[in-house]
Design a binder for these strands. Structure first.
Lengths: 226, 226, 226, 226
DNA sequence: CATGAATGAGAATTCATTCAT
DNA sequence: TATGAATGAATTCTCATTCAT
């Protein structure tokens, strides 16, 4: 996913770089810096990351880094913000279709399985850890992450749940709470494990599917119609 | 590894220790250092904490600190280990009685309410954040925390659930999974919020009680007998 | 040396310069750079000034700055030299008429008042401070300033005083000393104050007039005829 | 005079350094740092001085410097403040006796000659230049210098002049102005020269005496009785 | 000829850790 | 055994100056 992001920022270089279109060397460098910084920050944490390493990895002079980003702090903020935005988009799409489902149970299973795979990506795990680690130094960043990640996810999900409840397909007097329960039923087990198990945690698809399926089962037992 | 450290740091008690100093000046200092270190580490994180501050707060010289703890790392390890042990004890007791409950539902509520209050204590939140933040630098510590915290909690709970299932008072083909579901149903909402909201998060008792009660409701819907 | 620099920096005007650009783009830019540099140097001092800021303020590229001025040092030299020249002209004119005065006392008052107002201009105060500050790094500059400022002023004044002495209108066995006394009687009080009071010193006209008048009084008491 | 100051701070080390009086190694180091810093700052200016050089010259680790002085700024402040205090004391004494003089003219000459010699000491010239140079960065320091140097000097002198005026031995309707005139008549010529002539200015005693004597002559012509 | 980037070094400041007294 | 100082390196950031496009 990291690559996806940097690609989206990188202007389309179609070989024939005519002189009237310098394509912004600046923009390229900027993208290189962001990529390098993401790598370094996620690998070494905020304190452990050095501007030298970032510059070296980006194949750029330190000066250039500082011309693009005033501070170590602002570089960090930029990285995290970018990633939050990228993650945000993905999360939203997944939920959208639920209320128009023909086979609700099947679709909940599909959603749960997709969701758990998405969130437990090593990259996102590391990002999550990094943000938690720096929540005191960058409170706004942590809040932004929470608001546009879990919180927004809960809201989207709650909206769907409410519709489903109005359709009589679920019983959910408090749709937001239901959404939160569902979300954490899906994610909590692997997520908490991952938080405390070095960056090398790996879950098999089977495991994740199992967690997803059982989460749906519990959710439906508590919130299903009838 | 935690044990190794604490052993090596235990001062050689050479008998000739006058009766009016039953504790040993050394042991007192050691305790003072640990207290100070806990404060500083929890406040400033591992990277932000300075040995100077620890020494100053403990009112001892830096040399004394280094005489008791080889390293910054080993000091940190000692602190966290201590806290893990302290926490561990508390957690265990809470569960023990469940399988002999007369009024299961009521006792589940009681347990859930106690549990959530306990885990969301600011002190524990900060400790949790600190361990997550340093999970890469101190993998064993993180693992130890997880094993003797959530994992052991789940195990204890699972044992109770299994008994209750055998008594026909719950339906739980996979007691461990049931325990995990129950645990995270109780904790996830406030815990995740707290992870991303600066050290000042505060929950009202009413909120926590509500989360606890709803968690029990969902749990019983999925795992209750009948 | 000042001259040498300005010569070397004068661009080779290669004839083929279309008539609609009578001044030369180059010369305009040069002027813009000098203006910008003056502003920046006077504001931030030699050490505090940055070539980036100069270039930015002049709205040219850094390369252009370096094409016109070899060095930061030579840019500084050029600025100060320019200002010295500008100041020099003004100072000279003021004195010229004294020996042909009809009403000496009145003209001394007029001179003193003009002189003190001129020298205490914020711009000149800052320039003076800057030169003093960098007297070790730019000894020749400081000397040039002194020679073509105070020194030359003293000389001009001394010439007048000598004529007046020959006319019997003053008693001045050592006209140069008399000139120096007069000059510093006028200037010393506000000038010394200004040197040590941040760049915001402001004197009222009344104050300055008073200093000027009293300086003339003392001067005439010591050097007046009779 | 620099030595004088450092001596006064250095505790009396009378060889026999008994073990019960460690004399404060700390204090010694502190004094060494101050001495070194004075040397370096006066030689290279604030910007040019490096903390490394200070530490090296003081034969002390950089860390020790920073333990005694938080900042480069605070080190600088400490140096200048110390020197101001030292200078201050000296200046005051010189004036005190004037109003009880038996032979006023002779005593004015003596005062003027002492004063000019004192103020034109290379050490003080450099200090003066340094303070002027940094008047923008350290406005309070510059003001302190001015207040406790010239200003206070003027005040002391003015007090004497006023008494002499009351005794009918001088005519001075505005004693403060008279004091300022006297002071600058004595100092201005060499002082202004020195400001603009690299740190190597040297005046012969004959020159200085001449300036002093002529200053007294002019002063008495303007402010003498009768 | 102008622009963005590179260079390459230097500055202040901080830290964990270890001598020496 | 405890204290102040030393060590020595690391880190962030800045600057004057010079390529390369």
């Amino acid at each position: 996913m990291a690559e996806a992001v940097s690609k989206q920022d990188r202007p389309a270089r179609s070989g024939r770089q005519s002189s009237r279109e310098p394509v912004g060397r600046s923009a390229q460098k900027r993208a290189a810096i962001i990529d390098a910084a993401r790598t370094v920050f996620l690998r070494d944490g905020y304190g452990g990351a050095g501007m030298d390493q970032v510059a070296a990895l980006a194949a750029v002079s330190k000066q250039t880094v500082y011309k693009h980003f005033t501070d170590k702090k602002s570089l960090f903020t930029a990285i995290i913000t970018t990633d939050i935005a990228a993650t945000e988009a993905l999360t939203r799409d997944m939920v959208t279709a639920l209320s128009e489902s023909q086979d609700l149970k099947a679709d909940l299973h599909r959603f749960a399985r997709q969701h758990i795979v998405h969130v437990t990506q090593p990259h996102l795990i590391r990002l999550r850890r990094l943000i938690i680690a720096e929540a005191d130094r960058f409170p706004e960043l942590a809040r932004t992450w929470y608001d546009s990640g879990p919180e927004r996810g809960h809201a989207s999900l709650a909206a769907e749940i409410q519709q489903l409840a109005q359709q009589g397909r679920l019983r959910a007097p408090d749709p937001l709470l239901a959404a939160q329960h569902f979300n954490w039923l899906i994610l909590s087990i692997p997520l908490n494990q991952a938080m405390f198990h070095g960056s090398d945690t790996a879950f098999t698809t089977a495991e994740l599917d199992h967690y997803a399926d059982e989460a749906v089962r519990v959710f439906l037992a508590a919130y299903g119609a009838l």
